[in-house]
Write a protein that binds this DNA or RNA. Structure first.
Lengths: 230, 230
DNA sequence: CCGTCAACTTGACGACGTCAACATAGCGGC
DNA sequence: GCCGCTATGTTGACGTCGTCAAGTTGACGG
């Protein structure tokens, strides 16, 4: 074949691994389809023969898994970064959700790899999930939320994931012109629901001042969770 | 090969089409993986050679699309059936969401085909979406909800889809022992959020009796949307 | 300078989707 | 009763995919 690359010196063969990973993700986003993520295509772009990929990855699934690991890391950083700028824990939680959806919409193909593959690995998603749990835990510690942080974070994750996933896979639906409307509505609704569940008595319908007190708190928080770009 | 099937008479060659579709879905659920959905495997199970599939489907994608059409139909029926038993439009809307998630959890592999494929068709999903819009429209006509039915239905769909999708793809997450807890929480939260958005003034934080009035209505509806199995 | 070991390549296998060409059953018309 | 036409399949092949066993090549240590 043409224009072969210079062989790596003994000891830093791992450089090829990085290059393969980089080219795999580039190929993914350039073609816009995960079907184009072929061992042969990745190898060719790296100017290496196909079986060379097996020197660093046990197979295609392992390669994809490694790509996913990087993306999970990126997503985790984006969330942590979004949260770190905010002091109020509930607003930070909302920004966490917003950052999540925006990252998904900015990297639709990668996001599909992460959470829509037949067997998406549970291990890698845990780290990212922890960031959400941390944001929730901060809310619980500040008293604005109660309940099991895992459960609250899960509810929130399902909401933002559904928002991102449907936006990606079903672009032809009658979405509003500005997707931020849907994102804001999702974040606000789930946030408000969580706050309400915290400040309202459960298992029965509260009435009168009892209701008013709880909802007043929730409603004030609701404002904070609203669209930031207004 | 062994035990070939008897050739169909002219005119009812379409019988093979049905048989192929049936075997394709059976193969899908039996193996539990869409990777096993191979033209060759489907053909073998139908006791037909592989290219015979091309008599009724233009290719593999068309076959999958046809399988999806059937599943969308099933899902639509399940939703319509769930809604038809209920008179109160808001409770019916909640049951719509619940039926949706339960169908997804009962048919995880098919659900993946419907909404997690690289290019899930928009056409087929529209019909099912209309059912949700109808349920929302009933709420709007009865006055319990306001706003654009499309948008409200979309918000609800994102929520229940996220719930179903994450439950399917990430079973290792710390879900509560009873998944109905999450489903109920999702339905209740999104329903309550929709009702609240209807009965509360927007774009500012309502206070006092204004807040109380709106939330009282919402809270009563909240009870109706709660877990039905209590 | 030579062996040895890491870093690749060569060549092949089976499975997959797809297509052009061929075969055959049954019905209508003469 | 036979002919031929069309619907209904089958045969064989091509190119691509993931994967693997075996061979090759380059640099470094002794």
């Amino acid at each position: 074949m043409e224009a072969r690359r210079t062989r790596a010196k003994p000891g830093d063969g791992a450089r090829l691994r990085e290059e393969i990973l980089r080219n795999a993700e580039r190929l993914l986003v350039e073609t816009g389809s995960e079907d184009a993520l072929t061992l042969r295509a990745v190898a060719q772009r790296t100017r290496v023969t196909t079986p060379s990929v097996y020197l660093h990855f046990s197979g295609k699934e392992a390669l994809i898994e490694a790509v996913c690991l990087r993306v999970w890391d990126e997503l985790g950083n984006r969330i942590r970064e979004a949260v770190s700028r905010i002091t109020d824990p509930l607003i930070a939680l909302g920004e966490c959700g917003r950052a999540y959806v925006h990252f998904a919409l900015d990297h639709p193909v990668q996001y599909r790899l992460l959470l829509m593959r037949p067997s998406a690995s549970a291990e890698a998603s845990r780290t990212c999930f922890e960031h959400m749990v941390n944001a929730v835990t901060a809310c619980v510690e500040s008293g604005v939320l109660k309940g099991n942080p895992d459960t609250v974070a899960l509810t929130m994750w399902t909401a933002v994931h559904g928002c991102a996933a449907l936006l990606i896979t079903q672009p032809a639906l009658p979405w509003p012109d500005d997707v931020n409307e849907i994102i804001d509505a999702t974040v606000r609704t789930v946030g408000f629901g969580a706050v309400l569940n915290t400040h309202l008595p459960r298992r029965r319908v509260p009435r009168g001042t009892e209701l008013l007190d709880g909802v007043t708190i929730a409603a004030e928080r609701l404002k904070a969770l609203g669209s930031r770009k207004k």
